[in-house]
Amino acid sequence: MDFIQWFVQGFIYLFVTPMQHEFMVKAVLVSALVGLVCSALSCYMTLKGWALMGDAVSHAVLPGVVIAYVMNIPLAIGAFVFGVGSVIAIGFIKAKTRIKEDTVIGLVFTGFFALGLVLVSKIRSTIDLTHILFGNVLGISDSDIIQTVIISVITLVTLAILRKDLILFCFDSTHARSIGLNTTFLYYTLLSLLSLTAVAGLQTVGIILVVAMLVTPGATAYLLSDRFDHMTLIAMALGVFSSVMGTYISYHIDGSTGGCIVVLQTILFVVAMIFAPKHGIIAQSKDIEVNY
């Protein structure tokens, strides 16, 4: 009985008491939603090999966010323009010069990001750069919550409708084209969703770490499943779990929320990497013993 009592009290202290603060209720709900959306998209990013692209786009949205702020329009619109713009720039430079793609990506996103930094520093405003770079979900405003919800709904509905086509696009774009699917449309759809979720992730973990939200849950789930649907469900569960727990942990230790969420995601990845039933390191080494 003592143990149960101790457990219940501990649970209340850790998870219920913080909810007396309105900001904590908002923070937990928003990060759960962002975790859900980012991890749903992360499955496509992982399988398409777009981790670097995700990193690029999430950094490249910065000038768009600043300009949108100054013009007093939704940040998502500015981010969208610059996110997609950066990818068009990458494609253009790759096609017109002899420079390899990873170099072009590195070049373009740092250039956009630097432009964003200059804009932030020169514009007299209340924009807090650290909030954009590292997130500020504990202090999220109501208009930002509305924006996050809208982005989340758009992303989840699009993924739900185009799920099979996007899977085919990631798996075998040649076949997709040969049966008349518009792969250019699918490419830009995935890219647009990436830019939008980068803005949503910006609120919780910040521009620097949003790529982790868009990669890690998918990578972890990929080690745990051989079916795309299962992989998506596992990724979303991991995404929501680490976002919620990370937010609580950051509250209790008074540390960076984005940092806590991503560290937790990384720990989950390492655990999966070692212990995954089929694709983990231990299982793989047993496989080799059996084979030889």
Binding site: L47, I167, L168, C170, F171, D172, H175, Y222, S225, D226, R227, F228, H230, M231
Partner: peptide, 11 residues
């Protein structure tokens, strides 16, 4: 890629 044989043929 996490698809099975049936999924591929269904494509």
């Amino acid at each position: 890629f996490p698809v099975d044989v049936y999924d591929v043929v269904m494509m």
